[in-house]
Simulated scan of single mutants.
Amino acid sequence: MNAAISFTGGTNSHDKDGVVGTVAVSAGELKLRASTTTPAVIGAPTSLADLSLALSVEKPGEFLIDYDIPSRDVRLQFMNSVNVLDKPLHLTYTHARRANLTALDGSLVLNPANKVWGRYGFGSGDCQVKYSYVQGGVRTFEPCYDVAKDSWDISVSQRIFYGDVIRAFYRTSSKVLGLELLWQGMNRDGRFKLTASMNLAEGLKVPKLSAQSTWNFEI
Rank of each mutant, 00 (worst) to 15 (best):
M79S: 07
I65A: 01
V74N: 01
S56W: 01
E62T: 04
F78V: 13
S56V: 10
V57Y: 03
I69A: 15
S56R: 10
S71E: 15
Y67E: 07
P60K: 11
V57R: 04
I69W: 09
Q77W: 04
V74H: 05
D66R: 08
I69R: 08
R75Q: 13
V57K: 05
S81I: 08
I65S: 01
V84Y: 07
P70C: 09
V82P: 01
Q77P: 00
R75N: 13
N83P: 00
M79E: 06
V82F: 08
V84M: 14
E58L: 07
Q77A: 13
N80W: 09
F78S: 09
L76N: 06
F78A: 11
V74C: 10
V57T: 09
E58P: 00
S56I: 06
G61Q: 01
I69S: 13
Q77R: 03
V82Y: 11
G61H: 04
Y67T: 06
S81Q: 15
L76V: 08
S56E: 15
I69Y: 09
Y67G: 02
K59S: 06
N80Y: 03
L76E: 06
I69K: 06
N80R: 10
M79R: 02
V84R: 08
V82C: 03
R72S: 14
S71P: 03
Q77N: 11
D66M: 12
N83H: 03
S71F: 03
N80K: 07
L64R: 12
E62R: 07
P70V: 05
K59W: 07
M79C: 02
I65Y: 00
V57N: 04
G61N: 11
D68Q: 12
R75H: 08
E62M: 04
L64C: 07
V74S: 09
E62G: 01
P60G: 13
R72A: 14
P60W: 08
F78C: 02
L76T: 08
V82A: 09
K59Q: 14
R75C: 07
